[in-house]
Amino acid sequence: MELFLRYVRENWADLLVFTGQHIMMVLIGLLLALVVGIPLGILASRNRVSARIILTLANIIQVFPSLALLVLLMVVFGLGTTTVVAGLFLYSLLPVIRNTYVGLTQVDKSIMEAGKGVGMSPLQIMLNVQLPLALPFMLTGIRIAAVIAIGVATIAPLVGGDGLGREIYSGINMNNSARLYAGAIPAAILALLADFALERLQNGTRVAGR
């Protein structure tokens, strides 16, 4: 414990950089997942066939072991952060797509018909009715995706990436538990914080909507 504290005191600047890298990788991966996943979720909600295809594909990606996926991506992108971000993106995709899809399809048909009945165009129904009502579900998806991504990002160094994983693997390699903790504890805290913050956000939208 003393060792750990001393290590942190002496290396806090490096740790901060690792944490920053970690967050950046997760954010970029997540953002890409939102940009791609939300439209795919919307597409899936439009009809049965598209739902089957999109959800099945996203599921297949998800069942790949994370290390195997990263190694496969490394073949394409080479060693480095790009591979990690691509992996995080793919891993976040399913929760985003699935929750967008569920959120959109659970909206009461009669509320959508009311929107149609008052003269909204299909786009206006999507923007003014369906998406706002699906928001709490979509936030659940983002929350799950964020927590998974923060975890998966710790294996980044294996494919040449940065982040808190560096400390963890160095700690393992050098049999230095202080170092290992210095990587693992901030990663765990990050995951908890993300979970907590997104839950708050989610509750906020729920209160406004009900």
């Binding site: 009669s110 509320i111 009311a114 929107g115 009945g117 008052v118």
Partner: peptide, 12 residues
């Protein structure tokens, strides 16, 4: 104008 049974209002 169009009014439907009970659920016509937008809950959000």
């Amino acid at each position: 104008g169009y009014v439907i049974q009970n659920v016509g209002l937008f809950p959000h």
